[in-house]
């Protein structure tokens, strides 16, 4: 995978690209300002920053949920704008911070099938995609489970499956480990590592970023503070503390 990513970088094919991206809610204070970066096909990129740094806003802009930005935002070579939204949303899947918002149908199967059905696939193909997505997150045994009877960890995996069934080229995960117990968190890390395609993981959980992403973007007050190898950024205690973050616990333990 790393070699493939390197090849894509060499070929200069970014899956996701922003140029001087600036955004504010209702013309107020800028939440994102002059943000430029590229994520290449097959990369797993961590997006870190303190509360209000603009992580969730950035992800929502990339899937077209927040129109009215300035600058450029591209997904799969398409500018994020109304006329391309349908295509963009098959190229990039967004996993909500709150799984409850993502899952709205009665059973896991129905919810995972919602996307493929909306794209007019026949039921055989829908079934194939649903089963494939559930297998990817290892919850195929829960396919007929009612969603409101599921635990937080199971809901998170089901939410990821709803996105995977659309076979996106990129997956954007917003605080995926929030409110998960250690066991479910470990399981989630394994799942994220196994997920195919390009990934952007926005999280405060720096240990999760360290375990899953080879590259990290540090945001501070809507600006890109640093873009580099995860290990380099997450070991820079001074940099992290200047932006309201702390060294990952695993690194602290390692150094003792």
């Amino acid at each position: 995978m790393e070699r493939e990513t390197e090849n894509n970088k060499m070929a200069g094919r970014p899956e996701i690209r922003t140029e001087h991206l600036t955004f504010s809610y209702d013309g107020g204070k800028e939440v994102l300002s002059d943000l430029s970066f590229s994520v290449f096909r097959g990369e797993c990129v961590g997006l870190i920053g303190e509360n209000g740094a603009g992580k969730s806003t950035l992800l929502k802009i990339l899937v077209g949920l927040l129109p009215g930005y300035q600058g450029r935002a591209e997904v799969g070579g398409l500018q994020v704008e109304k006329k391309y939204l349908r295509q963009i949303r098959t190229k990039a899947g967004y996993v909500f911070q709150d799984s409850e918002s993502q899952l709205f149908l009665s059973t896991v199967y129905e919810d995972v099938a919602f996307g493929p059905r909306n794209y007019g696939l026949d039921e055989k193909e829908v079934d194939r995609r649903v089963m494939e997505a559930l297998e990817q997150v290892h919850i195929e045994a829960l396919k007929d489970r009612q969603i409101y009877r599921m635990s937080g960890g199971q809901k998170k995996l089901a939410a990821i499956a709803t996105v995977l069934s659309m076979r996106p080229e990129a997956i954007l995960l917003d605080e995926p480990s929030g409110a998960l117990d250690p066991g479910n968190r470990r399981n989630l890390i394994r799942v994220i590592r196994e997920l195919p395609g390009t990934k952007i993981v926005a999280s405060h959980d720096l240990d999760l970023i360290l375990d899953t992403c080879e590259r990290t973007l540090l945001l501070g007050e809507g600006r890109l503070i640093k873009d580099g190898p995860t290990e380099e950024i997450l070991t820079d205690e001074k940099l992290l503390s200047a932006h309201g973050l702390e060294l990952p616990l695993s690194l602290i333990h390692r150094s003792r």
Binding site: F96, S101, Y119
Partner: peptide
């Protein structure tokens, strides 16, 4: 949020 989640999965 629920509506956005529907839109993101092709609901027109």
């Amino acid at each position: 949020d629920v509506y956005h989640s529907m839109l993101l999965r092709g609901y027109d």
